[in-house]
Simulated assay, not measured.
Amino acid sequence: MTEVYDNRVAGEDRVGNWMQTHSGRRFFPIDPRADEVFIEDIAAALGKLCRFNGHCRGFYSVAEHSVLVSMVVPREDALAGLLHDATEAYVADVIRPLKPYLAGYAEIEHRVWLAVAEKFGLAPELPESVKIADNAVLLREADEIMAQPPELWNVKGTPANVPIECWSPAMATTMFRARYTELTGEMVP
């Protein structure tokens, strides 16, 4: 029998257990709140998360992907583009073919997105331009950093004209933070 992990604080009215973030704070992925979302935690985590479950030719981070998406969309959607995968800082980067089969995952990810959106003043639904750019960057990544596929990917769109550089985790975190500052004028602690 698997032992249930329980680190809840007695008397605290929260659902589920908390995880510790990069900055040392608590975050409840099942009970997310906007005041517990921090850009420095998002940048650090996404900088270290490898896309495609690590099945690319070299390390390629979710942070680099996010920066590229933010550059492909119209300026008014750039912050949403940068943060479109911010949930993955708290609930992991689950590959697309697996997501529909993980019971409850979509709901958890959506609740985390709502906390992220509230924190950064974004709409609860991603702009269509972000969805299109996400696919366009994905298609460029498929061409540039993935092995020859056994068949065509079932992704609509045209590859984005962006450079895939495969930044190190430290560089990816730095570039994500810099892009956030460029878009908002706020320095990342």
Rank of each mutant, 00 (worst) to 15 (best):
I42H: 08
I42C: 12
I42K: 11
I42Y: 05
A43Q: 10
A44L: 13
A44N: 10
L46R: 03
L46H: 03
L46T: 12
G47W: 05
G47E: 08
K48Q: 06
C50G: 13
R51N: 11
R51L: 10
F52Q: 09
N53W: 06
G54C: 06
G54V: 00
H55Y: 10
C56N: 13
C56K: 01
C56P: 03
C56D: 04
R57N: 10
R57V: 05
R57T: 05
F59G: 00
F59Q: 02
F59T: 01
Y60L: 15
Y60M: 15
S61V: 06
V62D: 00
V62K: 03
V62E: 08
V62T: 07
A63K: 02
E64V: 13
E64N: 14
H65Y: 14
H65W: 14
H65L: 13
S66D: 15
S66H: 09
V67N: 10
V67F: 05
S70T: 07
S70M: 12
V73D: 07
V73R: 11
P74C: 15
R75A: 15
E76P: 01
E76S: 10
D77F: 11
D77H: 15
A78R: 02
L79M: 13
L79N: 11
L79C: 13
A80I: 04
A80F: 02
A80H: 02
G81E: 02
G81I: 00
L82T: 05
L83N: 08
H84E: 04
D85E: 13
A86V: 04
A86L: 08
A86N: 12
A86Y: 08
A86F: 04
A86T: 10
T87I: 02
T87H: 08
E88W: 02
E88T: 14
A89Y: 01
A89D: 05
A89N: 07
Y90M: 01
V91E: 02
V91H: 04
V91Y: 07
A92P: 11
D93F: 06
V94S: 00
I95S: 04
I95L: 10
P97A: 03
P97Y: 09
L98H: 09
K99I: 15
K99T: 11
P100V: 00
Y101E: 11
Y101R: 13
Y101S: 08
L102A: 02
L102H: 04
L102Y: 05
A103I: 14
G104N: 00
G104Y: 07
Y105N: 02
Y105L: 15
Y105M: 12
A106H: 03
A106M: 05
A106N: 03
E107G: 13
E107V: 04
E107P: 00
E107T: 05
I108Y: 01
I108G: 06
I108A: 07
H110T: 06
H110C: 06
H110P: 00
H110I: 00
H110E: 14
R111H: 12
R111C: 04
R111A: 14
R111F: 09
R111P: 01
V112H: 10
V112C: 12
V112D: 06
V112E: 08
W113F: 00
L114G: 10
L114H: 05
